[in-house]
Design a protein around this nucleic acid. Structure first.
Lengths: 216, 216
DNA sequence: TAGATTGTTAATCGATTAACAATC
DNA sequence: TAGATTGTTAATCGATTAACAATC
């Protein structure tokens, strides 16, 4: 039933799946059993055809005339995203942002679990964040191996980000989420997502009304 | 010289401008005077033609045969993004993530300045974060008016996000950056950017190698 | 001058949306 | 049965890239 012929699927599609998943999880909590692409599209601000097409890349999950069974679709999307298995995550950089993310509940959900925290500063090593001991950078490689860590989150200052990325790659990490405000370069077999908080905020400024100009 | 005929410019273009700006600022700090679209593209992983085209929407900033003057281009991009004026920002939700962002240096740069922090909890009201007093929600509307606040950052839990968004809109805010893991709905004259930390992380899982399947 | 690089038009590529037969 | 809704193909739309004349 499911198409296992993985034609490469575009990033845009993959980025939407977790959004669908989140809404479906909400519906499930509300006790809703089935949902149509139309309903989902309305709530999420997306074209229903797009939602159907996105899902259809991976199989036939719906029923004509009925819609999608919420629980079943949740299960399927979790499978597609590999969120049906526990994914151990390492966080590097125990500053304000790093510790906030480690404590951030929404972040610790859905089987992605921060299981190790590293920091460059000897002052921080030994402290705990949410029950996880902060380790020195020297222990990164071994810990990644021991705990089977597959994803790294970078929350160090920009000037240190590339060096940390190199170390994560060297330790055998498969994917990196970078919160440092700089572009990092990694080999093609490692996936990087840039969570660009600053650029996101700055692009917002463009859309402000500008009363100081007379616009006509 | 600059085209003031604002054909609507696509979001994709606007989102790239702060990335250019950041790199140019770095170059300036390094003492670099001019840069070509080719150089920029190489560093930022982007097609040079795209960079030239993006910039050309707003004017002729480069010189044929030479490239772009770094300082001049910085100035121009800052103008385009309205970052040449101080933009007062309010942050709502003084939890872990909120306080971390308020203290986050990269966030307090480039004329976007968090000038007020609000929290629902009476326990938090009165405390300070980085010299800014946490105010109760009741004071939001008046403070937004008094301090001419134009942008709101939402860092409350998901279930509270829509309510906070409504209050920000009611107070006359022009743009919202939403960190709560949920979609919020606002009138069309208000701009919302979703900083979707969780979905970003979850989509990363898709790209992990999956040794448990035999892929052929 | 020769080489480099812009700004811009044209070509390509990819993503979104519309439409509809199939069917619950 | 009639109405609803999927999965999918075709049409549209938009964004990216290539190419090149202009020119520093």
């Amino acid at each position: 039933m499911a198409k296992e012929r993985e034609q490469t699927i575009s990033d845009a599609v993959i980025k939407r799946l977790p959004i669908y998943l989140r809404y479906l999880t909400y519906l499930d909590r509300m006790g809703v059993r089935t949902v149509s692409s139309h309903q989902m599209g309305k709530e999420l601000g997306q074209n229903p055809a797009q939602i159907r097409k996105d899902l259809a890349y991976f199989g036939e999950f719906g029923r004509k005339g009925i819609g999608y069974e919420v629980r079943y679709l949740i299960k399927k999307i979790r499978q597609i995203l590999h969120l049906d298995q526990l994914i151990p995550v390492a966080l590097v950089g125990a500053g304000h942002l790093g510790t906030a993310l480690a404590r951030y509940n929404a972040f610790q959900q859905d089987n992605m679990r921060i299981v190790a925290i590293f920091d460059h500063s000897p002052l921080k090593a030994g402290r705990e964040v949410d029950g996880i001991r902060i380790q020195p950078m020297e222990e990164l490689k071994q810990t990644v191996k021991d705990k089977d860590i597959r994803v790294g989150i970078i929350t160090v200052p920009d000037y240190a980000a590339q060096e940390v990325a190199d170390q994560l790659v060297d330790a055998g990490i498969e994917a990196i989420m970078n919160f440092a405000p700089t572009i990092i370069h990694v080999p093609p077999n490692v996936r990087v997502h840039h969570a660009d908080l600053t650029t996101e905020l700055h692009s917002l400024a463009y859309y402000l009304r500008h009363p100081e100009y007379i616009v006509m």
